[in-house]
């Protein structure tokens, strides 16, 4: 996502951006939760989402909202 420029901010020296490993157990727990709570909206059918990708926390890239103002 970041463009490869010769000069980059300190936090990006040595890393592109945080890469997340799939978390299949957590992703399965989320699917079970959605079924158990009968959350009608098809949260688990998001096309862009890999089955191992999670939407309940730190692993989803939304993270802790540090970016908002």
């Amino acid at each position: 996502m970041t463009v490869d420029t010769p000069v980059r901010p300190a936090i990006f020296v040595g890393q592109e951006q945080m890469t997340l490993a799939p978390a299949p157990a957590l992703a399965q727990w989320e699917r079970d939760l959605i079924a158990r709570l009968e959350i009608e909206r098809a949260l688990h059918q998001i096309e862009s989402m890999h089955p191992n990708e999670t939407i309940s926390g730190s692993g989803d890239g939304w993270d802790d909202c540090d970016y908002a103002r």
């Binding site: 957590l26 727990w29 989320e30 939760l33 999670t54 309940s56 926390g57 730190s58 692993g59 989803d60 939304w62 993270d63 802790d64 909202c65 540090d66």
Partner: peptide, 12 residues
């Protein structure tokens, strides 16, 4: 994190 994520902690 004033509005940090926490649901995944229940899952884990």
């Amino acid at each position: 994190n004033p509005q940090g994520q926490w649901l995944f902690v229940e899952g884990m």
